[in-house]
Deep mutational scan, measured.
Amino acid sequence: EALDLGTCKAKKKNGEPCTQTVNLRDCEYCQYHVQAQYKKLSAKR
């Protein structure tokens, strides 16, 4: 099993862990959760 392949560390809205696979060398979170957090933070400017 590849060491750099894993699952997203974020949690879904219902509290369950996200099940998307990610490349851990790039980021610990999937694209969906990265974009969601970016939108959330950019709205606070």
Rank of each mutant, 00 (worst) to 15 (best):
G6K: 14
T7K: 15
Q35C: 06
S42A: 11
D26I: 04
V22T: 08
L3T: 03
S42Y: 04
K40I: 02
R25C: 02
R25H: 05
E28Y: 02
K9E: 10
K12S: 11
K9W: 01
C27P: 04
Q37R: 12
V34G: 14
A43G: 11
V22A: 08
D4Y: 03
K11E: 10
A10G: 11
V22Y: 02
L24M: 10
C30K: 00
C18A: 02
E28R: 06
S42M: 11
C18T: 01
L3S: 03
C30F: 00
D4A: 00
K9Q: 11
Q20K: 08
Q20H: 14
S42E: 15
V34I: 03
Q35I: 05
V22Q: 08
Q20Y: 03
H33F: 00
G6E: 12
K13Y: 07
Y32T: 14
Q20P: 03
T21E: 12
E28G: 12
K39R: 07
K11G: 05
V22N: 06
V34T: 12
V34R: 08
Y32R: 08
Y38R: 11
Y38M: 13
E28D: 09
T7P: 03
T19I: 03
A43H: 06
V22P: 02
Q31M: 04
K13H: 04
L5Q: 09
A43D: 10
N23F: 07
H33A: 03
K9F: 01
V34A: 07
N14Q: 06
N14I: 01
L3F: 02
K13S: 08
T21L: 08
T21P: 13
P17D: 11
Y29D: 02
V34Q: 15
N23Q: 14
K11M: 13
D4I: 11
C8H: 00
E1G: 06
A2H: 14
V22L: 07
C8T: 01
Y38W: 09
Y32L: 12
N23E: 13
L41Y: 05
P17M: 04
N14E: 03
D4G: 02
L24C: 07
Q31E: 13
E1K: 15
L41T: 15
T21W: 04
C30Q: 01
A36C: 04
V34K: 13
E28K: 05
V22M: 04
K40V: 09
D26C: 11
Q31H: 08
S42W: 03
S42K: 02
Y38C: 14
T7N: 09
G6F: 10
K12H: 09
R25A: 11
V34P: 10
K11R: 14
T21Y: 15
K40D: 13
Q31V: 07
Q37I: 03
Y38I: 11
C27M: 11
K39L: 00
Q31Y: 04
E16D: 15
H33I: 00
S42N: 14
Y29G: 04
Y29A: 09
C30H: 03
A2L: 02
K40Q: 15
V22D: 05
V22H: 05
G6C: 03
K13M: 04
A43L: 00
C27Y: 05
N23A: 11
A36E: 13
T7Y: 07
R25Y: 02
V34F: 07
L24N: 11
Y38S: 15
G6H: 11
K9G: 05
L3A: 09
A43F: 02
G6S: 09
V22C: 04
L5W: 00
T19A: 11
L41H: 10
G6A: 09
V34L: 10
K12R: 14
L5P: 12
E16V: 03
N23H: 05
K40C: 08
V34D: 12
Q37P: 14
S42I: 08
Y29V: 08
K12P: 04
Y32N: 05
K13G: 14
K13E: 07
S42H: 06
L41Q: 15
Y29M: 08
G6Y: 04
L5N: 10
A10Y: 09
L24A: 14
C8W: 00
Y32M: 01
G6N: 05
C8I: 01
D26G: 11
L24Y: 05
D4M: 10
R25S: 09
Q37C: 10
K40L: 06
A10S: 14
V22F: 01
G15M: 04
V22S: 05
T7L: 09
K39F: 04
K40P: 05
Y32P: 10
N23C: 11
Y32G: 14
T21H: 11
K12N: 14
R25D: 07
K40Y: 04
K11L: 10
T7F: 13
Y29T: 11
C18L: 03
Q35V: 10
L3P: 01
H33Q: 00
L41M: 15
A43W: 00
C27L: 10
R25L: 05
L3E: 13
K9D: 01
K39N: 08
Q37M: 10
L5I: 13
Y32I: 06
T7R: 11
D26H: 12
Y32S: 15
Y38F: 13
P17G: 07
A2Q: 01
T21F: 02
S42V: 10
K9M: 05
D26R: 09
A2C: 03
V22G: 04
T19Q: 08
A10K: 00
D26Q: 08
T21R: 12
P17T: 11
N23T: 13
L41N: 11
T21G: 12
E28V: 09
L41W: 09
Q37S: 14
R25N: 09
G15P: 00
P17I: 04
P17E: 11
C18Q: 03
G6W: 02
R25V: 07
E28Q: 14
T19H: 07
C27N: 06
G15A: 01
A10R: 04
